[in-house]
Structures are given as structure tokens and as C-alpha cells.
């Protein structure tokens, strides 16, 4: 698809909006449908679109395979790390009330906790989606 001008320009224009939308879906997940999982899929789809139009090598210069594979593991670490952090602060594992800056409004900690664990979900899902896409897209080429 390297010669199709409309597709190339269209993908280039759309990609930043898709990435912004993914972040919106994540950070607005408290108030509207969506959350880390959906945001991760949308973020992965943005890079899959770029890879389809501009070729795998161009995208892998920005997001090398080792990086997305590390992302897939880091997300789980973030999620579990939030649990460990709340334990160190003296609450239950994943007891988000520990994260509140002002102990008189403990439910504010729930906001931070949910955003952080959803960030973990986002990073894992993004890493997994892009890694699997790299594997599928890169496979036929390497075999020839």
C-alpha cells in the first residue's frame, strides 16, 4: 500500500486522533464507558493501522518488539505494584483508600487507585496486541 496517497495521508491524519481517543477512553473511564482494556486495544489498533500503511519496519523503528514485549509484562507489574503499595501504606492488598492524599476523604484514593490499575491493564493490553500483531505480520515476510 506504499503508493496509495489517500491511504497514506488518511492514516497519518487519523493516527494522532486515534491515540488521543485511546487516552480519553482510559482517563475518562470513570465517567463514561471504557477503561484500560478498551484504551489498550484502541492504542494498539492505531499502531497496527500505521504498520499496515507504512510497513512494519517504519513502525518498529518507533516501537521496537522488545519494547512492546516489555510493556506486556510491565502492565502486570504496575497492577500488582499498586496492590503492594497499598499494603505498604497499611491497608489491604489493592485497598485504594490508602492512596488518598487527605485521609478524611478516603474515597478519593479510589480514583487514583482505579486510574493506576487501569493504566496497568492499558499497558499490558497494548503490549500484547502490538506484539501479537508484529508476530503475525512479520512471520510471512521472514519465511520468504
Amino acid at each position: 500500500m506504499r503508493e496509495e496517497v489517500i491511504v497514506r495521508v488518511g492514516a497519518k491524519v487519523l493516527a494522532p486522533f486515534i491515540i488521543t481517543f485511546a487516552l480519553y477512553v482510559h482517563f475518562h473511564g470513570d465517567y463514561s464507558p471504557g477503561g484500560g482494556f478498551q484504551a489498550g486495544v484502541i492504542l494498539g489498533a492505531a499502531f497496527a493501522l500505521l504498520a499496515l500503511v507504512y510497513g512494519l519496519d517504519e513502525v518498529q523503528r518507533v516501537l521496537p518488539p522488545w519494547f512492546v514485549q516489555a510493556c506486556a509484562a510491565m502492565g502486570v507489574v504496575i497492577y500488582a505494584g499498586v496492590g503492594v503499595a497499598t499494603m505498604l501504606l497499611g491497608h489491604n492488598y489493592l485497598g485504594y483508600n490508602a492512596l488518598a492524599p487527605d485521609p478524611s476523604h478516603a474515597e478519593h484514593g479510589q480514583h487514583y487507585g482505579i486510574l493506576l490499575v487501569e493504566l496497568g491493564v492499558l499497558v499490558t493490553v497494548f503490549g500484547v496486541m502490538v506484539s501479537v500483531f508484529y508476530l503475525f505480520a512479520g512471520r510471512g515476510r521472514k519465511a520468504q
Binding site: 470513570d30 465517567y31 463514561s32 464507558p33 477503561g35 489493592l94 485504594y96 474515597e107 487507585g113 482505579i114
Partner: peptide, 17 residues
């Protein structure tokens, strides 16, 4: 308890963390 309007998110990430 959670302070979040989207019940799906609070069940998913907090009650069922």
C-alpha cells in the same frame, strides 16, 4: 463508597480488583 459515576468501572477495578 467509590465516588465514581460509572458503576461498571467501580465494580471492575475496585470491588472486583
Amino acid at each position: 463508597e467509590i465516588g465514581i459515576p460509572n458503576v461498571v468501572t467501580s465494580v471492575l477495578a475496585s470491588y472486583r480488583g
